[in-house]
């Protein structure tokens, strides 16, 4: 799974209330959630984010609530991958379950800057900065998590396995 896109950069400890505030949990429509994505961190983000973007942030990304609306909003906004120094636990699990690729890479999280064009190989965790040349190695997902992500999430993964059994 290869991704090529433009970096949108955020700080440390980006919490789920910044990613998608609870006042928008009255919908589970991904496109409506996307319209408010990152609203309390950067109100201009949802309006300017391009398809196939790469979100980059510091430590503890996605801390706070268990709301799965958070990775859904990010994915639906057009972000193809999130790179952070570290992720909060529930967000990490939710991102895999809904098929949003994420990579933990403290070096890339520091080096990559807003607007950089990057190439990301999810399977082997390799991150390449094409604007300011540099290469960064993240620890890739264990194989069973990669299978879930590559099928677009746990729902598709389970459905396929149910079909195989039938």
């Amino acid at each position: 799974m290869q991704i090529k896109g433009c970096v949108y950069k955020f700080g440390e400890d980006v919490d789920t209330d910044q990613i998608i505030p609870a006042r928008y949990l009255n919908t589970s429509d991904p496109s409506e959630l996307a319209a408010h994505c990152m609203e309390d961190a950067d109100p201009t983000f949802a309006g300017r984010v391009q398809p196939d973007s790469v979100m980059v942030a510091g430590k503890n990304f996605g801390c706070g609530s268990s709301r799965e609306h958070a990775p859904i909003a990010i994915k639906a906004a057009g972000v193809s991958c999130v790179i952070a120094s570290t992720f909060a636990r529930i967000f990490y699990r939710n991102a895999i379950n809904i098929g949003l690729p994420i990579l933990e890479c403290p070096e890339a999280a520091v080096a990559l800057q807003e607007g950089d064009e990057v190439k990301v190989d999810i399977a082997n965790g390799l991150i390449k900065n094409l604007t300011h040349p540099g290469e960064y190695q993240a620890v890739p997902f264990p194989p069973f998590m990669q299978k879930i992500v590559s099928r677009g999430g746990l729902i598709n993964y389970v459905s396929e396995r149910m079909k195989d059994r039938a």
């Binding site: 919490d15 209330d17 910044q18 505030p21 609870a22 006042r23 609203e39 309390d40 961190a41 706070g64």
Partner: peptide, 11 residues
């Protein structure tokens, strides 16, 4: 338990 910006619906 949380005082995040916007938590109470006003950032």
């Amino acid at each position: 338990n949380r005082n995040f910006k916007g938590r109470m619906a006003n950032n």
